[in-house]
Design a protein around this nucleic acid. Structure first.
Length: 225
DNA sequence: TGCCAGGCCCTCTTTAGGGCCTT
């Protein structure tokens, strides 16, 4: 990899449903962490890893303009009714501008990180962006999927991938011996994602792991549309 | 009519089937 990322932007989307529903985004959360905070980790008095103090955070709710499935509504707490009542805007050029400005404030290059990102978050975000004429993210932006990264790291030490559960909550439990908090709230999921990244940060940041597990934004195909 | 993801990976595979991971 020619240029190693200086900033990792952890990403989570809440949506109206899964792929079969041609989902739309109901909430987006981005949290940027500088490389130095991932390399120089902070622990509490008990020696437990802590979130870095310096975080740039952005969470926005979005009116999807289509029905949210009952299960998605139940787990995320977002309904068509409460999004409309709170007068949330749809996924529009203004939101794309905000995302771009958020990214441009970070030390470059930037790497997106999402759990199952290659199959869900990145393709769906690309679909939503493609609907907005004249808007895009820089194609040189890097993307990493922590499902693939954790499988890669396990394989390196001889753990067979089919012998483990790679759901984010399970990886969190293995690392911290307790369940993550605020699941299916975009910010809660992103903070848990940062914590699982921190638990293996040294290995993830190795050149071999990065070069084997990163794609460029330009290589991501839209989910649909 | 009723049902409905899907690309990827694994293995008791390859003329196939099943599970994963996200909301």
């Amino acid at each position: 990899m020619a240029n190693s990322p200086k900033t990792f932007v952890f990403l989570d989307l809440e949506t109206t449903g899964l792929k079969g529903d041609l989902p739309k985004i109901t909430e987006i959360c981005l949290v940027a962490v500088h490389l130095s905070s991932l390399e120089n980790r902070v622990t509490d008095e008990a020696g437990q890893l802590e979130l870095p103090r310096i975080l740039d955070k952005m969470c926005l709710c979005v009116d999807p303009g289509k029905p949210i499935t009952s299960y998605a509504s139940e787990i995320t707490g977002l309904s068509n009714n409460n999004l409309v009542k709170n007068e949330k805007q749809d996924f529009n050029p203004c939101l794309v501008h905000i995302i771009n400005e958020f990214l441009s404030r970070q030390a470059q290059p930037v790497c997106f990180v999402a759990h199952n990102g290659f199959l869900f978050d990145f393709p769906l975000l690309k679909t939503e962006l493609q609907k907005q004429e004249g808007t895009s993210l820089t194609s040189s932006l890097l993307c990493m999927d922590t499902v693939e990264v954790f499988k890669f790291l396990d394989m390196q030490v001889g753990i067979r991938r089919e012998s483990r559960d790679y759901a984010q909550a399970q990886i969190y439990r293995r690392a911290y011996r307790k369940p993550p908090q605020n699941c299916h709230n975009a910010e809660g999921d992103v903070l848990a994602l940062i914590m699982i990244f921190l638990s293996k940060a040294d290995q993830i940041l190795e050149k071999e792991t990065m070069s084997n597990n990163c794609m460029r934004w330009g290589e991501i195909s839209p989910m649909y549309g």
